[in-house]
């Protein structure tokens, strides 16, 4: 503290409290809406205090879904989202750490070509090449499968760069010592590099889990049957109905269930999350 300005400190507190409230407000309203029965949304104003239908809403959505709009129970959708988020996160980490290892610890023809090919994936978000990518997945027969949901998303330039940067900082002596002791590339990777990368893997996992969980366009394209719907894309189907026939309570129940898991991950692993976020962008 350089100079004291009590009024500036007060202002800072005021701005931050306003910010916290602003950020939390939509979620508060969603949570409140998920505790009310359907009749509270027919007219007037959305309720701002908790209602008494919490258990009924969550139980019926988790086990029965919304039959009027053909939406399946949320339990299955949550499961699909979890499978997708975990497969995307672990898939990206696995193939990226291997390619970074190849690029940093080996010298071979076409190394630069491989590096640039991986770099390209950074530039081509699925949104801009959606039609031809969909066609490839359809031709491979991967529609309505977990493979179709996850495999096309697991190439990762950011994760590869992160591991590459990290490997470059690992002291040369470690590998030289390992080689003198007779460790081959596989043993060195498994017994030395992998344990050293633990924090990076964990930080990356937090970011990639959120990325996988929050996918919207891709699951919407590759799933035609409700058995493979993920929860984030499933909300849209319910809210479409909601406009014709207000079912805001169950839509908001779905919203709360869809945002809770990634938020828990971020809150529970805040330090790793910040590390992962800041390092993947370097």
């Amino acid at each position: 503290m350089i100079d004291r300005h009590p009024w500036l400190d007060a202002l800072a507190h005021a701005v931050l409290i306003a910010g916290v409230l602003l950020v939390a407000f939509p979620v508060y309203v969603a949570v409140i809406a998920s505790t009310h029965g359907p009749n509270d949304f027919m007219s007037g104003l959305v309720p701002l205090l908790p209602g008494s239908d919490t258990i009924a809403n969550y139980r019926s959505m988790l086990t029965d879904g919304l039959s009027s709009s053909g939406a399946p129970p949320l339990g299955g959708m949550l499961w699909n989202s979890l499978v997708m988020a975990l497969c995307v996160a672990f898939g990206k980490i696995a193939i990226s750490i291997l390619s970074a290892y190849a690029i940093v610890y080996f010298r071979f023809p076409f190394r630069a070509v491989a590096f640039w090919m991986i770099f390209v994936t950074l530039m081509l978000p699925v949104e801009v090449r959606i039609v031809p990518t969909f066609k490839v997945v359809a031709d491979l027969g991967l529609l309505d499968s977990y493979a179709g949901l996850t495999v096309p998303l697991i190439a990762s330039a950011t994760a590869t760069f992160l591991f590459r940067q990290f490997f470059l900082t690992v002291p040369e002596e470690l590998m030289e010592a390992a080689r003198i002791d007779g460790a081959g590339p596989l043993k060195f990777f498994r017994d030395i590099l992998l344990p050293l990368s633990r924090t990076n893997i964990a930080a990356l996992f937090v970011i990639l889990f959120i990325y996988g969980w929050n996918q919207y366009l891709w699951p919407m394209m590759v799933t035609t049957k409700s058995s493979h719907y993920t929860i984030v894309m499933g909300i849209k189907r319910m809210s479409d109905v909601a406009d014709a026939l207000p079912q805001w309570n169950v839509v908001m129940t779905t919203v709360v269930l869809a945002l809770l898991p990634p938020v828990i991950v971020v809150v529970g692993m805040q330090r790793l999350f910040v590390k992962g976020l800041i390092e993947t962008e370097k």
């Binding site: 931050l16 910010g19 916290v20 950020v23 939509p26 979620v27 309203v29 969603a30 809406a33 959305v46 959120i210 969980w213 929050n214 919207y216 984030v232 894309m233 909300i235 849209k236 809210s239 805001w248 839509v251 908001m252 919203v255 869809a258 945002l259 990634p262 938020v263 991950v265 971020v266 809150v267 805040q270 999350f273 910040v274 976020l277």
Partner: peptide, 18 residues
């Protein structure tokens, strides 16, 4: 202040739409 990063854009959209 940081947790909203974890909320999917689609979910954020629906909440504000509401």
């Amino acid at each position: 202040l940081v947790w909203p990063y974890a909320v999917a854009p689609a979910v954020a959209g629906i909440m504000w739409w509401f």
